[in-house]
Design a protein around this nucleic acid. Structure first.
Length: 270
DNA sequence: CTTGGGACCTGGCTGC
DNA sequence: TGCAGCCAGGTCCCAA
């Protein structure tokens, strides 16, 4: 699933291809991909626009254009942006051609991804919490956020309005590395636990970016290559296996309807 | 404020 | 072999 490290990798690898290029053709195979606008209008407004820069905010990709508009993409569960794919299959929902001759295909098996074309990016990403890898995101920032919420720490970590970019699998990895039980209440964590949690959040996310994201399910990098971060996972997608530290069988618990995997020995209940 | 549920969506899995 | 039912999870929305 594309979370912060996968979206960051997509941004990093797309940028050299797309920066300074103009959209020469926009083909929408699935009209539901476009939020709140007709396909015709969307294509008309995008054509001949130049991409100045690609940014990431949380799990969103933000394309700054020469016009006053901003193109925002969310990959959701199974979305991927592929550069010059060998063939366009039934999962392709849109194709973009550029002035340098390259083609970028939005591929999305479960069709939950979405594109926005707006004047102000804040209309889409304005309510997101802080970026966990921003230098302004300190243990004290995290402490202030968690103190305000009497909810399971797992639920807090994946709430995009509290912290941006963390999803189900990295939340599980971060909590395992921090030795914190997913059901522990956010406002009950000690300052020591919050410092560890902050450290592990930065470490896990940065390490996953260095590994070009995790290729579980359908995620592939724009080049078509896979990421390698999944090989370091200790609990995510390892259901039925044993803890790499203490050999206790990993357990599953549902937090806010999301499967949460943890080691009952390394991450004991409070 | 939190909590729980449904909706979206399709491939993969289970059980009959 | 086929089919129904459920599950996966990012996000939004609604009711209690």
């Amino acid at each position: 699933m594309p979370e912060l490290p996968e979206v960051e990798t997509t941004k990093n690898e797309l940028s050299p291809w797309l920066r300074g290029q103009n959209f020469t053709q926009v083909i929408i195979f699935d009209p539901k991909l476009i939020f709140n606008a007709s396909v015709k209008e969307f294509c008309r407004q995008l054509i001949m626009q130049r991409i100045e820069k690609i940014n990431r905010r949380g799990k969103y990709l933000i394309f700054n254009l020469t016009s006053e508009q901003v193109l925002i993409m969310h990959l959701r569960m199974t979305g991927a942006l592929l550069v010059n794919p060998k063939r366009i299959d039934s999962y392709a929902r849109a194709a973009f051609n550029f002035s340098n001759g390259i083609q970028v295909v939005f591929s999305d098996r479960r069709r939950l991804g979405i594109l926005y074309l707006v004047r102000n990016a804040d209309a889409v990403v304005g309510k997101l919490g802080p970026e966990p890898l921003d230098k302004n995101f300190t243990p004290s920032t995290l402490a202030k956020i968690l103190k305000r919420h009497h909810i399971p720490i797992k639920a807090a970590l994946i709430d995009q309005n509290l912290i941006a970019g963390i999803g189900n699998m990295y939340a599980d990895e971060i909590l395992f590395a921090s030795r914190i039980n997913p059901l522990q209440k956010a406002d009950a964590l000690s300052i020591q636990e919050i410092q560890i949690l902050h450290h592990c959040t930065c470490k896990i996310l940065q390490s996953a970016i260095n590994d070009k994201g995790a290729s579980v399910d359908t995620y592939t990098r724009p080049s078509g290559h896979l990421g390698a971060a999944q090989s370091n996972f200790k609990v995510a997608h390892r259901y039925g296996e044993i803890c790499t530290i203490c050999s206790t069988p990993l357990q599953r618990v549902s937090v806010r309807g999301r499967g949460s995997y943890f080691c009952p020995h390394c991450q004991p209940p409070a």
